[in-house]
Design a protein around this nucleic acid. Sequence first.
DNA 1: CGAAAAATTGATCGACATCAATCTGTGTGG
DNA 2: CCACACAGATTGATGTCGATCAATTTTTCG
Lengths: 227, 227
Amino acid sequence: MNTRSPGPIACRSCDLHDVCRLCGLIAIGEHRTMQRTGALRTIRAGARLYRAGEPAHSLFAVRQGMLKTVDVGTDGEERIVAISTPGEVLGTEAFGMRVYAHDVVALQPVVCCELPLSLLSDQYVRVRELAVALISLLSRASKPRIALARGSIRARVGGLILDLARRLEQRGLDGQRFSLGMTRQEIANLLDTRIETVSRAIQKLSREQAIDVDGQWVTLRSLRPAD
Amino acid sequence: MNTRSPGPIACRSCDLHDVCRLCGLIAIGEHRTMQRTGALRTIRAGARLYRAGEPAHSLFAVRQGMLKTVDVGTDGEERIVAISTPGEVLGTEAFGMRVYAHDVVALQPVVCCELPLSLLSDQYVRVRELAVALISLLSRASKPRIALARGSIRARVGGLILDLARRLEQRGLDGQRFSLGMTRQEIANLLDTRIETVSRAIQKLSREQAIDVDGQWVTLRSLRPAD
DNA sequence: CGAAAAATTGATCGACATCAATCTGTGTGG
DNA sequence: CCACACAGATTGATGTCGATCAATTTTTCG
């Protein structure tokens, strides 16, 4: 099975693009493609990008692959709070908290850009436009995410697939055919249900021709919102 | 029944405090209480503070009372996404989006402070400390909220009550005895369940001495997290 | 190939949804 | 003040979707 992770994406379709550019991390020429000078970081599948409570030192932008944001309760049980796709930014809570709020783990081989908070903080007090860009970024990140763990299981699984499709498409990736990037167990955790239930729901969508399924790979057929 | 809404709170325990102060909207004297010069706004129960898609012109800080943030789906059905308590800020998505992302409706008589975006934008590019405060505010707002609509109904209702108690206490209000401020129907909507189920869950907690209940009024007894 | 992890499938059970009736409190007009 | 209407809340009976338990099958990977 093809296990390639989605991406890499172009800098111009990244949420951190303006901030990076104004930090001088990428230079854009009219007649040539962009040039990166920022710090790239690669993470293997299953490895942790950062940990809840750990002193925050950087923002991260996902260039390739997907990650899960995990909330570990007082009792040690893990709940997947969100999935990050290429072009999205992780660690935005760092400015206010000084520590990361969650564990973030790569679902696949991931490549991301690391933007040190010290660099940002130094520059945004001098570069007016950078402050504007940073405020815009954080403002957009403060919008509550779509609640996937609501309604019937059918609605949750369908909603997750459509949400991923929309987000991938937004970044110029293939939103018609893509890998969920998660085990059934992880999907079940994210959607607050059980692995067997996820399996059956996906089979059902497949039987109804709403999607085609091959392991973690999904092809959209007739799946529509509010199905 | 006593239907007073929680608050008012002191400016110093408001999330917007630093931002307001640096905007010159409040002046703090050593030997006297703070003095407000910002714009207050009162909203009667059931009235809308703002609407999804409407051009955003202000941030709001809740001084007294509670509000619900409502997501209206494409099919017109309403889902309550969050509850705001005194001291919290609404409209933080406005910097990035230029329009509000949700409907926000007062659950009770509400008093809030209105902070025009134009004033903020004018000043943060000149006042370095204001940009810092604003970035800190938005950063904290970007942390995902606790998912209340997960787990058993018992866990959801208990989680909601404990969450409200914690947030009220954080602002110097009474977290031991307070009004839920919502009808059973609104609680059901927020927790993704049905009104009868909410009613039964609350009765059960009451019978088990975890809480005392009188209509919307709740007194905490032995209710603990992860119950 | 063989072992371990992931996924599927089936049978049964239970928590919550649904439908329906009743109760409680609150405001209104006679 | 009382009768009434209405919304909110509770209570009961029954149905159903998803949880749980258990057994295989499929995939992954050393």
